[in-house]
Design a protein around this nucleic acid. Structure first.
Lengths: 139, 139
DNA sequence: CTACAAATGATATCGCATTCGCAATAGCGG
DNA sequence: CCGCTATTGCGAATGCGATATCATTTGTAG
Protein backbone atom coordinates (compact mmCIF):
# COMPACT_ATOMS: atom_id res chain seq x y z
CA UNK A 1 0.00 0.00 0.00
CA UNK A 2 2.63 2.49 1.05
CA UNK A 3 5.61 2.85 3.26
CA UNK A 4 5.57 2.26 6.95
CA UNK A 5 7.33 4.70 9.22
CA UNK A 6 10.64 3.28 10.35
CA UNK A 7 10.29 0.73 13.07
CA UNK A 8 13.22 -1.47 13.77
CA UNK A 9 11.76 -4.39 11.95
CA UNK A 10 9.17 -4.70 9.24
CA UNK A 11 6.52 -7.20 10.20
CA UNK A 12 3.39 -8.53 8.55
CA UNK A 13 1.39 -7.17 11.46
CA UNK A 14 2.60 -3.59 11.09
CA UNK A 15 2.05 -3.66 7.36
CA UNK A 16 -1.45 -5.10 7.68
CA UNK A 17 -2.50 -2.52 10.26
CA UNK A 18 -1.04 0.35 8.29
CA UNK A 19 -2.64 -0.83 5.07
CA UNK A 20 -6.06 -1.09 6.66
CA UNK A 21 -5.95 2.44 8.05
CA UNK A 22 -4.77 3.94 4.79
CA UNK A 23 -7.21 1.98 2.67
CA UNK A 24 -10.21 2.93 4.78
CA UNK A 25 -12.14 5.96 3.61
CA UNK A 26 -13.08 6.75 7.19
CA UNK A 27 -11.59 6.74 10.71
CA UNK A 28 -11.48 3.27 12.30
CA UNK A 29 -11.86 2.04 15.85
CA UNK A 30 -9.11 -0.14 17.29
CA UNK A 31 -11.53 -3.05 17.13
CA UNK A 32 -12.31 -2.35 13.49
CA UNK A 33 -8.62 -2.24 12.71
CA UNK A 34 -8.23 -5.59 14.41
CA UNK A 35 -11.11 -7.15 12.51
CA UNK A 36 -10.01 -5.80 9.15
CA UNK A 37 -6.29 -6.47 9.55
CA UNK A 38 -7.04 -9.97 10.78
CA UNK A 39 -7.97 -10.70 7.19
CA UNK A 40 -4.28 -10.51 6.36
CA UNK A 41 -2.88 -11.78 9.67
CA UNK A 42 -5.51 -14.08 11.16
CA UNK A 43 -4.19 -14.52 14.68
CA UNK A 44 -3.51 -10.78 15.07
CA UNK A 45 -3.75 -9.62 18.67
CA UNK A 46 -5.49 -6.50 19.95
CA UNK A 47 -2.34 -5.74 21.93
CA UNK A 48 -0.37 -5.53 18.71
CA UNK A 49 -3.01 -3.24 17.24
CA UNK A 50 -2.70 -0.87 20.19
CA UNK A 51 1.11 -1.03 20.13
CA UNK A 52 1.18 -0.23 16.44
CA UNK A 53 -1.39 2.55 16.74
CA UNK A 54 0.78 4.16 19.38
CA UNK A 55 3.90 3.90 17.23
CA UNK A 56 2.11 5.33 14.20
CA UNK A 57 0.83 8.24 16.25
CA UNK A 58 4.28 9.00 17.59
CA UNK A 59 5.60 9.31 14.07
CA UNK A 60 2.57 11.41 13.10
CA UNK A 61 1.57 8.85 10.49
CA UNK A 62 -1.94 8.58 11.88
CA UNK A 63 -3.98 10.69 14.25
CA UNK A 64 -6.79 10.00 16.66
CA UNK A 65 -10.33 11.15 15.86
CA UNK A 66 -12.33 11.71 19.04
CA UNK A 67 -16.10 11.90 19.13
CA UNK A 68 -18.11 12.67 22.25
CA UNK A 69 -18.66 9.63 24.44
CA UNK A 70 -16.95 7.23 22.07
CA UNK A 71 -13.71 5.34 21.73
CA UNK A 72 -10.97 6.88 19.61
CA UNK A 73 -10.88 6.25 15.89
CA UNK A 74 -7.77 6.56 13.73
CA UNK A 75 -7.08 7.93 10.28
CA UNK A 76 -3.99 8.99 8.30
CA UNK A 77 -2.54 12.21 9.65
CA UNK A 78 -1.97 13.79 6.25
CA UNK A 79 -5.61 14.75 5.74
CA UNK A 80 -6.21 18.47 5.75
CA UNK A 81 -8.65 20.24 8.09
CA UNK A 82 -12.04 18.63 7.90
CA UNK A 83 -14.97 17.45 10.00
CA UNK A 84 -16.98 14.31 10.66
CA UNK A 85 -20.35 12.80 10.02
CA UNK A 86 -21.59 9.92 12.12
CA UNK A 87 -24.39 7.68 10.92
CA UNK A 88 -26.84 6.99 13.73
CA UNK A 89 -27.76 3.63 12.27
CA UNK A 90 -24.48 1.93 11.33
CA UNK A 91 -22.44 4.14 13.68
CA UNK A 92 -19.68 4.60 11.15
CA UNK A 93 -17.89 7.93 10.99
CA UNK A 94 -17.16 9.61 7.68
CA UNK A 95 -14.93 12.52 6.77
CA UNK A 96 -16.63 15.66 5.56
CA UNK A 97 -14.35 17.63 3.31
CA UNK A 98 -15.74 21.10 3.60
CA UNK A 99 -15.65 23.49 6.52
CA UNK A 100 -17.94 26.47 6.94
CA UNK A 101 -14.91 28.51 7.96
CA UNK A 102 -15.13 31.61 10.07
CA UNK A 103 -16.87 30.98 13.38
CA UNK A 104 -15.49 34.01 15.21
CA UNK A 105 -18.95 35.49 15.46
CA UNK A 106 -20.01 32.64 17.76
CA UNK A 107 -17.43 33.49 20.38
CA UNK A 108 -18.34 35.70 23.35
CA UNK A 109 -16.37 38.92 23.56
CA UNK A 110 -13.11 38.57 25.43
CA UNK A 111 -12.75 34.95 24.38
CA UNK A 112 -10.04 33.90 21.93
CA UNK A 113 -10.98 31.30 19.34
CA UNK A 114 -8.13 28.99 18.39
CA UNK A 115 -9.80 25.97 16.87
CA UNK A 116 -13.11 24.27 16.32
CA UNK A 117 -14.70 20.90 15.74
CA UNK A 118 -17.94 20.14 13.94
CA UNK A 119 -19.70 16.81 14.15
CA UNK A 120 -22.71 16.02 12.02
CA UNK A 121 -25.18 13.28 12.86
CA UNK A 122 -27.72 11.56 10.66
CA UNK A 123 -27.97 8.76 8.12
CA UNK A 124 -25.20 7.82 5.77
CA UNK A 125 -25.84 7.18 2.11
CA UNK A 126 -26.45 3.46 2.54
CA UNK A 127 -28.59 3.78 5.64
CA UNK A 128 -30.67 6.62 4.15
CA UNK A 129 -31.96 4.52 1.28
CA UNK A 130 -32.59 0.93 2.20
CA UNK A 131 -34.20 0.39 5.57
CA UNK A 132 -32.41 -2.94 5.89
CA UNK A 133 -30.82 -3.24 9.33
CA UNK A 134 -27.25 -2.54 8.34
CA UNK A 135 -24.32 -4.44 9.75
CA UNK A 136 -22.64 -2.20 12.25
CA UNK A 137 -19.21 -0.67 12.00
CA UNK A 138 -17.20 -3.08 9.90
CA UNK A 139 -18.09 -4.13 6.38
CA UNK B 1 -32.98 28.24 44.26
CA UNK B 2 -35.83 26.49 42.55
CA UNK B 3 -37.95 23.41 42.74
CA UNK B 4 -36.57 19.94 42.57
CA UNK B 5 -38.39 17.40 40.45
CA UNK B 6 -40.41 15.07 42.61
CA UNK B 7 -38.34 12.48 44.35
CA UNK B 8 -39.90 10.58 47.18
CA UNK B 9 -38.17 12.67 49.80
CA UNK B 10 -36.62 16.08 49.78
CA UNK B 11 -33.09 16.01 51.15
CA UNK B 12 -30.38 18.57 51.70
CA UNK B 13 -28.16 16.62 49.29
CA UNK B 14 -30.61 16.74 46.39
CA UNK B 15 -31.25 20.39 46.93
CA UNK B 16 -27.56 21.27 47.12
CA UNK B 17 -26.75 19.34 43.93
CA UNK B 18 -29.66 20.82 42.05
CA UNK B 19 -28.82 24.34 43.21
CA UNK B 20 -25.20 24.03 42.11
CA UNK B 21 -26.14 22.87 38.61
CA UNK B 22 -28.72 25.61 38.16
CA UNK B 23 -26.51 28.33 39.57
CA UNK B 24 -23.53 27.45 37.38
CA UNK B 25 -23.30 29.37 34.14
CA UNK B 26 -21.63 26.40 32.49
CA UNK B 27 -21.86 22.58 32.36
CA UNK B 28 -20.23 20.89 35.35
CA UNK B 29 -18.36 17.61 35.76
CA UNK B 30 -19.57 15.17 38.41
CA UNK B 31 -16.46 16.01 40.39
CA UNK B 32 -17.13 19.73 40.14
CA UNK B 33 -20.67 19.19 41.33
CA UNK B 34 -19.30 17.25 44.29
CA UNK B 35 -16.80 19.97 45.17
CA UNK B 36 -19.29 22.79 44.83
CA UNK B 37 -22.21 21.09 46.56
CA UNK B 38 -19.93 20.01 49.38
CA UNK B 39 -19.95 23.65 50.36
CA UNK B 40 -23.53 23.16 51.52
CA UNK B 41 -23.31 19.51 52.55
CA UNK B 42 -19.72 18.90 53.62
CA UNK B 43 -19.64 15.12 53.83
CA UNK B 44 -21.43 14.71 50.49
CA UNK B 45 -20.52 11.48 48.73
CA UNK B 46 -19.72 11.07 45.05
CA UNK B 47 -22.19 8.18 45.03
CA UNK B 48 -24.99 10.55 45.96
CA UNK B 49 -23.88 12.92 43.24
CA UNK B 50 -24.11 10.18 40.62
CA UNK B 51 -27.44 8.95 41.98
CA UNK B 52 -28.90 12.42 41.89
CA UNK B 53 -27.52 13.17 38.43
CA UNK B 54 -29.19 10.03 37.15
CA UNK B 55 -32.51 10.96 38.75
CA UNK B 56 -32.36 14.49 37.39
CA UNK B 57 -31.62 13.17 33.92
CA UNK B 58 -34.54 10.76 34.06
CA UNK B 59 -36.91 13.60 34.80
CA UNK B 60 -35.26 15.68 32.04
CA UNK B 61 -34.29 18.33 34.56
CA UNK B 62 -30.67 18.25 33.48
CA UNK B 63 -28.88 16.83 30.46
CA UNK B 64 -25.41 15.51 29.80
CA UNK B 65 -22.96 17.56 27.74
CA UNK B 66 -20.40 15.31 26.04
CA UNK B 67 -17.13 16.59 24.66
CA UNK B 68 -14.64 14.43 22.77
CA UNK B 69 -12.37 12.43 25.06
CA UNK B 70 -13.81 13.89 28.25
CA UNK B 71 -16.11 12.93 31.05
CA UNK B 72 -19.73 14.06 30.86
CA UNK B 73 -20.73 17.46 32.14
CA UNK B 74 -24.24 18.41 33.20
CA UNK B 75 -26.42 21.48 32.75
CA UNK B 76 -30.11 22.32 33.07
CA UNK B 77 -32.12 20.72 30.28
CA UNK B 78 -34.24 23.78 29.57
CA UNK B 79 -31.53 25.56 27.61
CA UNK B 80 -32.33 25.93 23.94
CA UNK B 81 -30.08 24.65 21.14
CA UNK B 82 -26.57 25.96 21.57
CA UNK B 83 -22.93 24.98 21.40
CA UNK B 84 -19.84 24.92 23.58
CA UNK B 85 -16.51 26.63 24.03
CA UNK B 86 -13.75 24.95 25.98
CA UNK B 87 -10.86 26.95 27.38
CA UNK B 88 -7.58 25.16 26.78
CA UNK B 89 -6.04 26.69 29.88
CA UNK B 90 -8.62 26.32 32.66
CA UNK B 91 -10.47 23.49 30.83
CA UNK B 92 -13.85 24.92 31.72
CA UNK B 93 -16.65 24.59 29.20
CA UNK B 94 -18.95 27.52 28.42
CA UNK B 95 -22.22 27.72 26.56
CA UNK B 96 -22.22 29.61 23.30
CA UNK B 97 -25.63 30.97 22.55
CA UNK B 98 -25.55 31.37 18.83
CA UNK B 99 -25.57 28.73 16.13
CA UNK B 100 -24.49 29.28 12.53
CA UNK B 101 -27.55 27.33 11.46
CA UNK B 102 -27.78 25.57 8.15
CA UNK B 103 -24.99 23.08 7.63
CA UNK B 104 -26.67 21.00 4.94
CA UNK B 105 -24.09 22.09 2.41
CA UNK B 106 -21.41 20.18 4.36
CA UNK B 107 -23.13 16.85 3.94
CA UNK B 108 -22.19 14.52 1.07
CA UNK B 109 -25.00 13.77 -1.35
CA UNK B 110 -27.15 10.85 -0.30
CA UNK B 111 -26.53 11.53 3.36
CA UNK B 112 -29.30 12.82 5.63
CA UNK B 113 -28.37 15.44 8.18
CA UNK B 114 -30.37 15.21 11.41
CA UNK B 115 -28.31 17.08 13.95
CA UNK B 116 -24.96 18.69 14.60
CA UNK B 117 -22.56 19.65 17.32
CA UNK B 118 -20.01 22.46 17.28
CA UNK B 119 -17.22 22.73 19.79
CA UNK B 120 -14.97 25.75 19.94
CA UNK B 121 -11.54 25.70 21.57
CA UNK B 122 -9.39 28.57 22.73
CA UNK B 123 -8.99 30.87 25.70
CA UNK B 124 -11.83 32.06 27.85
CA UNK B 125 -12.17 35.67 28.86
CA UNK B 126 -10.20 35.30 32.09
CA UNK B 127 -7.45 33.18 30.58
CA UNK B 128 -7.10 35.43 27.54
CA UNK B 129 -6.12 38.47 29.56
CA UNK B 130 -4.02 37.64 32.56
CA UNK B 131 -1.34 35.04 31.98
CA UNK B 132 -1.65 33.93 35.57
CA UNK B 133 -1.88 30.17 35.76
CA UNK B 134 -5.57 29.86 36.47
CA UNK B 135 -6.96 27.38 38.92
CA UNK B 136 -8.46 24.58 36.92
CA UNK B 137 -12.10 23.67 36.65
CA UNK B 138 -13.67 24.79 39.91
CA UNK B 139 -13.57 28.31 41.22
C1' DC C 1 -43.36 11.32 68.70
C1' DT C 2 -42.98 6.87 66.20
C1' DA C 3 -42.14 3.82 62.82
C1' DC C 4 -41.08 2.71 58.35
C1' DA C 5 -38.81 3.10 54.21
C1' DA C 6 -36.14 6.23 51.26
C1' DA C 7 -31.72 8.21 50.99
C1' DT C 8 -26.98 8.58 52.32
C1' DG C 9 -21.88 7.65 53.08
C1' DA C 10 -18.21 4.75 52.78
C1' DT C 11 -16.21 1.48 50.27
C1' DA C 12 -16.12 -2.59 47.45
C1' DT C 13 -17.02 -3.88 42.95
C1' DC C 14 -17.92 -3.61 38.05
C1' DG C 15 -17.13 -2.72 33.03
C1' DC C 16 -14.25 -1.98 29.73
C1' DA C 17 -10.60 0.05 27.03
C1' DT C 18 -5.91 -0.16 27.24
C1' DT C 19 -1.38 -1.79 28.85
C1' DC C 20 1.88 -5.11 30.88
C1' DG C 21 4.64 -9.40 31.52
C1' DC C 22 6.71 -12.95 29.50
C1' DA C 23 7.66 -16.98 26.84
C1' DA C 24 7.59 -17.95 21.98
C1' DT C 25 8.22 -16.27 17.25
C1' DA C 26 10.41 -14.26 13.52
C1' DG C 27 13.05 -10.15 11.09
C1' DC C 28 17.50 -9.25 9.59
C1' DG C 29 22.58 -8.31 9.71
C1' DG C 30 26.50 -10.90 9.05
C1' DC D 1 22.17 -20.56 7.91
C1' DC D 2 22.94 -18.41 12.80
C1' DG D 3 22.14 -15.78 16.42
C1' DC D 4 20.52 -11.77 18.45
C1' DT D 5 16.79 -9.22 19.86
C1' DA D 6 12.62 -6.70 18.35
C1' DT D 7 8.05 -8.09 18.01
C1' DT D 8 4.13 -10.92 18.84
C1' DG D 9 0.21 -13.41 21.14
C1' DC D 10 -1.96 -14.48 25.03
C1' DG D 11 -3.79 -13.72 29.27
C1' DA D 12 -3.37 -11.15 33.41
C1' DA D 13 -3.19 -6.61 35.29
C1' DT D 14 -4.31 -1.72 35.36
C1' DG D 15 -6.84 2.67 35.59
C1' DC D 16 -10.74 4.89 36.32
C1' DG D 17 -15.44 6.39 35.93
C1' DA D 18 -19.56 4.69 37.42
C1' DT D 19 -22.46 1.50 40.10
C1' DA D 20 -23.70 -1.81 43.77
C1' DT D 21 -23.79 -3.16 48.64
C1' DC D 22 -25.23 -2.42 53.12
C1' DA D 23 -25.37 -0.56 57.67
C1' DT D 24 -26.76 3.90 59.26
C1' DT D 25 -29.19 8.22 58.95
C1' DT D 26 -33.12 10.93 58.10
C1' DG D 27 -37.61 12.52 55.80
C1' DT D 28 -42.27 12.17 56.48
C1' DA D 29 -46.97 10.18 56.95
C1' DG D 30 -49.92 9.34 60.57
Amino acid sequence: MGDLPRMKRRTRQHQAIYDVIVAADRPLLAQEILTLAAGAVPQLSIATVYRTIKALQETCTIKAVLLPGQNPRYEPADHSHHHYFQCRQCERVFDVGTCPGNLDNLVPSGFTLEDHEIILYGRCCECSTGQEQATRLVR
